[in-house]
């Protein structure tokens, strides 16, 4: 990620949120907005973590159930849940999470690379780990989390 190539001493602002018992975060620069839960229209034949699509001011926005994407039980979705609209590499999508927990300022130097575990679904999606007040916070690798762009084979 280009943001990470900047001076390591620099502070980075992160949006932290909860998924079940775990805490995750994304670079706040990639967050477009935070929306309350609204029912997504399911897409047939789509992977299980694709919750469906919602109307974001006239645009059809895909919503990803982050819990399923990371190998956890699905979020059923109700008024307490939150959709974080993120944008990376020109792709925009909503991430359905349990709740937003915090906005953190973390020195880049404090972001640890994740241990090179097995190449399971989850670890591919984590770009870094950090400890804040003894809480382990996992930083998402957004471009992995978002569905890969299908090449327009026709063009």
């Amino acid at each position: 990620m280009t943001e990470n190539t900047q001076n390591a001493a620099q502070e980075i602002e992160l949006l932290a949120f909860r998924l079940g018992e775990q805490e995750y975060c994304v670079d706040i620069m990639s967050v477009r907005e935070i929306r309350g839960w609204s029912r997504a229209t399911p897409l047939p034949f789509s992977p299980g973590h694709v919750k469906g699509v919602i109307n974001l001011r006239g645009t059809v926005l895909p919503v990803i159930d982050l819990a399923v994407r990371l190998g956890m039980p699905p979020i059923e979705g109700d008024e307490r849940n939150v959709i974080i609209v993120v944008s990376v590499n020109g792709q925009t999508a909503g991430l359905l999470v349990d709740a937003v927990s915090d906005i953190l300022s973390v020195a880049r130097a404090d972001l640890q690379p994740p241990p090179d575990l097995t190449a399971d679904k989850e670890s591919n999606c984590i770009s870094a780990l950090t400890l804040v007040d003894n809480r382990l916070i996992r930083m998402l690798q957004l471009d992995t989390v978002l569905p890969t762009q299908q090449n327009d084979t026709a063009a």
């Binding site: 029912r39 997504a40 229209t41 897409l43 047939p44 034949f45 789509s46 992977p47 694709v50 469906g52 699509v53 919602i54 109307n55 006239g58 645009t59 059809v60 926005l61 895909p62 792709q91 999508a93 978002l146 569905p147 890969t148 762009q149 299908q150 327009d152």
Partner: peptide, 27 residues
């Protein structure tokens, strides 16, 4: 007609999406 994000590839049986009067997306 609203284009569906093509990240998921073509969905069999679904051409596109639209937004209905209640603000919901319908396929």
């Amino acid at each position: 007609i609203k284009g569906l994000n093509r990240n998921y590839g073509p969905i069999p049986g679904v051409a596109a999406a639209t937004i209905l009067g209640d603000g919901q997306v319908a396929l």
